[in-house]
């Protein structure tokens, strides 16, 4: 990359992840470090092996399930300020999944915020994104193209319900693919106000549903998709991670239709290429208008972008006279 980050920046992109020298900690490090501040519990942000983890209280339930038993956790309430080295660090809701946080780092007279992954749409499973005023905002850019504009979640929930009920009327099972952590629980919580039926879940989804219930999130009743006889699945809704698609595990459902919940489903080509019967546009990331709105609301004078369509967004911001650059990181585009 032609652009080099200035050496004096409070937070630097290093091969191991985003590093703050003044506080001697990493944010979402890729490998083992001393102090790891965690934005959320998805696999590309929370990795085993670090000595001490700083994360939101709401994130600990899931993190405990994903880290080895001996891992040392320091839960933080949202907005609680702690001192790390010469910096003061606090976590603020990011609205991505349960316990997801933005990291606010204060050093001298400057404030930096690392967004982690975030969205602005309401979500019954997590606190709404909080606008944190800052000088420098380090943002994700997963869906940073103007084509990505999300429909209202309530409309999408009704689409899912319709699809399920049509399949039920036809006597076939509905297998809905959604990422095991976050999206699956969001769907179960969104459907909660529309039906009282139970839903079957894949093993990978099940333990995380438990963690969400422990955190007090209301969701539809769930049953493990291991117990029933094949005939019992006719007309049922099954929530499974996308990795289960096409696996031998699917055979138990007999005749079924498949659906996928993801922001990628906004584009028809993506929808058709992945071969699901239905795509539902439901994302846990910010869409194009939300990204722009957020940049403006934080009042940040500099914007850094970590992953996604960083080049397009950077160039767009630069042309608008905004100081923006892309940082090279290894976060994934899954959701």
């Amino acid at each position: 990359m032609a652009w080099m980050q200035p050496k004096g920046d409070l937070i630097q992109a290093k091969p191991q992840g985003l590093y703050c020298k003044a506080g001697d900690f990493y944010i979402d490090p890729l490998g083992p470090v001393e102090h790891a501040v965690i934005t959320h519990a998805h696999g590309d942000h929370l990795r085993a092996g670090s000595a001490k983890y700083y994360l939101s209280s709401a994130c600990t339930g899931v993190a405990r399930r994903r880290l080895p038993a001996e891992a040392q956790l320091r839960p933080m309430h949202y907005r609680e300020r702690i001192a790390l080295g010469e910096t003061r660090v606090s976590l603020h809701p990011a609205g991505h999944i349960l316990g997801s946080s933005q990291v606010r780092v204060e050093h001298g007279d400057q404030v930096w915020v690392v967004s982690g992954d975030y969205k602005r749409d309401p979500d019954p499973t997590c606190e709404l994104f909080e606008v944190v005023p800052c000088d420098v905002f380090i943002s994700e850019a997963t869906f940073a193209l103007p084509a990505y504009r999300w429909p209202e979640t309530s409309k999408v929930a009704l689409e899912i319900l319709d699809w399920w009920h049509t399949n039920r009327d036809n006597g076939v099972a509905s297998v809905l693919f959604a990422y095991a952590l976050g999206k699956a629980q969001r769907v179960l919580a969104e459907l909660f106000s529309h039906t009282s039926d139970s839903v079957y879940v894949h093993g990978a989804v099940e333990s995380l549903v438990d963690a969400y219930r422990e955190a007090g999130i209301c969701m539809l009743a769930t049953l493990p998709a291991t117990v029933a006889a094949p005939t019992d699945y006719a007309g049922a809704l099954i929530v499974a991670p996308p990795s289960a698609a096409g696996s031998a595990w699917m055979r138990r459902f007999g005749e079924h239709r498949t659906g996928f919940c993801s922001g990628w489903m906004r584009i028809r080509g993506d929808r058709r290429r992945r071969g699901y019967d239905r795509g539902f546009v439901l994302s846990d990331h910010a869409d194009w208008p939300s990204l722009l709105r957020t940049f403006s609301e934080t009042g940040a004078k500099r914007i850094f972008l970590t992953h996604g369509y960083t080049d397009a967004m950077c160039r767009y911001l630069q042309e608008q006279g905004i100081n923006a650059d892309a940082l090279r990181t290894e976060y994934g585009a899954e959701e």
Binding site: L145, P146, A147, I267, R268, G269, A312, R315
Partner: peptide, 18 residues
Amino acid sequence: LVEETYASVGDLAETIAL
């Protein structure tokens, strides 16, 4: 940016609608 979006969507009718 429109060009880039079109390339990513891969369909003119859809790009316009999006």
